[in-house]
Simulated assay, not measured.
Amino acid sequence: MYSLYFLPVFVLIPHKPEKINLSKYFTSPVDSIQILSTDGVDMYPIIEGKIMVQLKGNVGSARINVFSGGDSFVKDMLFVRSRSRKIKFIYRGSGRNVYLAGSFNGWNSNALPMIKTDSGFVAEIQLSPGRYAYKFVVDGKWIQDTNNPLSEDDGYGGRNSILIVKGGHEFIDDISPSHYRFPFTLSRVYILNGDRLLDEENYSIKGRDVFLKNLKTDVIRIVGIGRKGEISGPFTFNIKPEPPIGGIMYFLFVDRFFEGDGRNMRKIKDPEVPDIANFMGGDLKGVILKLKDGYFDSLGISVLWISPVFLCPEGAYRDALPPHRKFTGYHGYWPVDLYRIDPS
């Protein structure tokens, strides 16, 4: 079993039990989960690699041991109170089939249908504080919200509507890889370095500032709690090491590289999608096979840069600009879930 990157910071509603499936973060099924310790959460394992969690307040944490196929991983988990609010979107124009799409759902054009009411087509969704771009999809046509004065160029000759959800301290300053500044005076911080919470001996708090030391990986996730109960985070920072000197980098486009299982499971059957804009069958398994058979070693390659392998949307989508060609997400740059590997 291999762990797929790090576990996310889970955003939960306090006092509401929630089921979390840990199997999606590993390459093979989880056999069992041992809960080693908890702080601020109630937690117990259930069947098939799932746990039930209930957050008691603003922030909670737990340490677990995950078993699968004879392997085990000890991981720390961090849970943060949701600050989301229910936001109502209204489209007051005409149409038969109206959907809401935006940065909050990976621009999926048919995932959020809007319901026709006396005041127009309505959709309500929960959104955390932040900035979101969106459009209405009316009978297949992408339309800006003309009742919203905030907008920006969409890069395709049109404009996206912009929504700003207020209600939190959503930004901190990364002054250096070991120094972070919050917008309020701190009483406590939670810092995940990789999949382990930093002990208090490895960080210090001075007013609004946090200073870190003895970091073990290049990724940290940080949450701050203020003296007046403010909460900010989670924030993710990548602490980049110095690049290697004198190496040869190979850029690898996964879908176009090598098909590892001998079948193109993802090709879209649509006469409007040209072959060059469709899936061609390359997959992560093919990359692994070529790593093992020494292909890159034979070329003198020391660094691989691969295109994204996150889950991408199904189907094909039409370009907003003439001649309005259709193409798929074969390139990997339309992720809809950053914690799931695309099955193709």
Rank of each mutant, 00 (worst) to 15 (best):
G106S: 05
G106E: 12
N108L: 15
N110E: 15
L112W: 01
L112E: 08
P113R: 05
M114C: 07
I115G: 01
I115L: 12
I115T: 14
D118L: 11
D118W: 04
G120S: 03
F121H: 05
F121E: 06
F121G: 00
F121K: 01
V122L: 06
A123N: 10
A123T: 14
I125K: 06
L127Y: 01
S128L: 04
R131Y: 13
R131K: 13
R131A: 09
Y132T: 02
Y132E: 01
A133M: 10
K135C: 09
V138N: 10
V138Y: 09
G140S: 08
K141S: 12
W142P: 02
I143E: 13
I143P: 04
T146V: 12
T146D: 14
N147M: 10
N148H: 08
P149T: 07
P149K: 07
L150Y: 07
L150C: 00
S151G: 06
E152F: 02
D153K: 04
D153L: 00
D153E: 12
D154T: 05
G155H: 05
Y156H: 14
G157Y: 08
G157K: 04
G158V: 02
R159V: 04
N160P: 01
N160Y: 15
S161R: 03
I162R: 02
K166Q: 15
G167S: 06
H169Q: 14
H169N: 15
F171I: 12
F171L: 09
I172Q: 03
D173F: 04
S176G: 10
S176D: 14
S178T: 15
H179D: 11
H179T: 15
P183S: 07
F184P: 00
T185K: 13
